[in-house]
């Protein structure tokens, strides 16, 4: 896609904004529509867009394949780890009151933040990994064929 100048310039402008929006959706999800699932997808879209317009090689310099594969598991581990932590401190599995025993409501805030972070990481990594897997196989087709 060397010759698509407008696409490349606009993509460079947009990628940062998309990532910022994803972080906003992730951390403002308690107050407005949003949360880990949406933020994960939006974050993945930023990487996928960059990979589509430039090349997969360039995205993989920023987000290498091995890192994505680790992140896929890390998100689930954060989620389950929150549950295990609350269990170790004598509460029920995934009872967020464990995170702040003197003020259970604050514990809920912390718990939701952690859990949503885990969801966000897994969803981002899975979507990016799926995209890598698909483009990794792509036969080289020219722009004219579409």
């Amino acid at each position: 896609m060397r010759h698509h100048l407008i696409l490349r310039v606009v993509t460079k402008l947009l990628v940062g904004m998309i990532m910022l929006f994803a972080l906003y959706v992730q951390f403002h999800g308690d107050y407005s529509p949003g949360g880990g699932f949406q933020a994960g997808v939006i974050m993945a879209v930023a990487f996928i867009l960059y990979g589509l317009v430039f090349s997969v090689g360039q995205v993989q310099q920023v987000l290498p394949v091995w890192l994505v594969h680790k992140l896929v598991a890390l998100g689930v581990l954060i989620y389950a780890g929150t549950g295990v932590y609350s269990m170790l401190t004598g509460y029920a599995f995934l009872d967020y009151a464990a995170l702040s025993p003197h003020h259970p409501s604050h514990g809920q805030h912390w718990g939701i933040l952690l859990v949503e972070a885990g969801v966000g990481i897994t969803v981002t990594a899975v979507m990016v990994a799926i995209h890598y897997a698909f483009v990794g196989r792509a036969p080289l087709i020219s722009d004219e064929e579409w």
Binding site: F37, G40, V41, V126, M127, I130, F134, R137
Partner: peptide
């Protein structure tokens, strides 16, 4: 439904991978 949508896209991509 919110969670079902994301699970749906994950399983759809699995189906597409099978097609490939």
């Amino acid at each position: 439904i919110l969670t079902a949508i994301v699970v749906g896209i994950a399983t759809t991509s699995l189906g597409l991978a099978l097609i490939v």
